[in-house]
Amino acid sequence: MTAPPPPAAPDGGDGVPVLDCLGQRCPLPVIALARAVAALPAGARVRILADDPAAANDIAAWCRMRGHTLTAAAPPSFTVRRD
């Protein structure tokens, strides 16, 4: 019997910092994302985990309002690049 594969790294192995907002209701994940992005240098990314039903819509809307880019959206994982 082979050993089970190791669990995937929470950052997907690509070094992008992860913000765990699972279980938080909107607008809390968006507030956390805004704080995290404010601390990033331009061009850097952050990955947010958010399973609120409004998260997919509101994270995309926030990116548009703030001029940042949603580079990947695979709920509950969303990757945002500071532009």
Binding site: R25, C26, D52, P53, A54, N57, D58, A60, A61, W62, R64, M65
Partner: peptide, 20 residues
């Protein structure tokens, strides 16, 4: 969403892609 019994945001705002 938090004002709906379903805790889902308005399907209208979602369809428009605006902040809900």
């Amino acid at each position: 969403a938090c004002t709906a019994s379903t805790l889902r945001p308005s399907h209208v705002l979602e369809a428009m892609g605006v902040l809900s």
